[in-house]
Simulated assay, not measured.
Amino acid sequence: MNVVITGYFNDQSKQRVIQSFPEDWKIQIVEPQQIDEFIGEADVLIPEHIEVNESLLNKAHHLRFVQTGAGFDNVDIEACSNRKIWVSNAAGVNANAVAEHILALILNHYKNISYLDRFMKNREDETKLEYVGGELFGKTIGTIGFGAIGSRVAELAKAFNMKVLAYDTNKNIQSDDVELVDLDTLIKNSDVITINIFLDDSTRNLVDSTFLNNMKNNALLVNTARGPIVCEEDLIKALKDNVIGGACLDVFTEEPLSLDSELRKLGNVVLTPHTAGMPDGTKFHEKRYRFFVQNILRIQRNETPINNLNQV
């Protein structure tokens, strides 16, 4: 089995990833710009930072399976189906890791951890310390999306005695623990809004100037889902003008985030480099790769993969 993985990995990360697969499999980890050199012999593709489109698939002479992480907006599923290539995602596998990351970002914002850490390390005069913070107790958090991640965020938020609002396009979702509301109600009443939905045509630029202007002026926006769900230009303007209280971002319109991005210069933003689902710092999450291996084994046995997004 020839598995090609694209992305940016250091040597330690590559070693851990390769060791998670059976020894007799050929595992090739390549940077996105190198994909054309390797796709021709790949049986399985795990794509990050590339588009799996007609152009790429025309070069994939042996490809049987495309396995993504939680998101699959970079894969042309119809084109894969036409070539009898299975597509599956890993929705829910990283749910707890992402949910914990979301809570960590929220706590960092309200407790000013990043700011206070820099203050102490800069050896500034503690008697002149001034900042605005707060408690989560009694605040309202709204999750846009109430799947595996959104529901886990709700559980964690409840431990802090937060009120939870949830919006989801799936009207069959029911919950006794959160208040299911429409999107406008969630936007206007939440102290914290966390985005936990997939990127598609209906959610691209969902968070625009209108959305941001309807938020509370001290509210926090958290995005660990997909960068293009947020119109970055509108968000930067809103943050500069103090339209909202702040933002915590793990994903961006273009990744890696440009070194010149204005987001890096704003004091009311906390940034992490798309690591919410990989908590150990080496771009490796054991549960995620264990899922990948089991799904590839299903393909070897000519079985339908778990979380399949198409039919072959």
Rank of each mutant, 00 (worst) to 15 (best):
Q311T: 13
I141R: 10
D11W: 01
F160Y: 15
Y110A: 06
V4T: 13
A154G: 04
V153K: 07
V192H: 05
A148D: 14
N189M: 07
P32L: 05
P305I: 04
K158D: 14
Q294H: 07
L220H: 05
D250A: 11
F292R: 07
G69A: 15
E31D: 05
N308C: 13
V87M: 06
R301E: 15
H62I: 01
I77V: 15
G267I: 02
N196A: 15
I113R: 00
P22H: 00
A154T: 02
L180T: 01
G71W: 02
K188Y: 08
E262R: 08
A95C: 09
S88K: 07
E37F: 09
D177E: 14
Y115W: 08
D280P: 00
F38I: 00
H49I: 11
D182W: 04
E54S: 14
N189I: 06
G277E: 00
A225K: 06
Q33R: 12
A159C: 13
Y110Q: 03
H274F: 03
V52W: 08
S209A: 15
G227W: 05
G7K: 10
S81I: 00
L57D: 08
I5W: 08
G92W: 02
E23G: 04
E54D: 15
S258W: 07
N196P: 04
Q33H: 13
N96T: 14
T203R: 11
D125F: 06
R64H: 14
P305H: 05
V230M: 06
R64A: 13
R226E: 05
D260L: 10
H62Y: 12
I244R: 01
I195K: 12
N10C: 11
P32E: 06
V312W: 03
A225D: 02
K111H: 13
D76S: 14
D177R: 13
D234G: 07
R16Y: 08
S175A: 08
R264G: 04
F38M: 02
I77E: 01
P273C: 05
K216V: 03
G147R: 12
G227Q: 05
E51M: 14
E124S: 13
L266T: 07
N10P: 05
E100Y: 08
N205C: 03
G138L: 05
I5V: 14
G71L: 06
L129Y: 07
E78W: 00
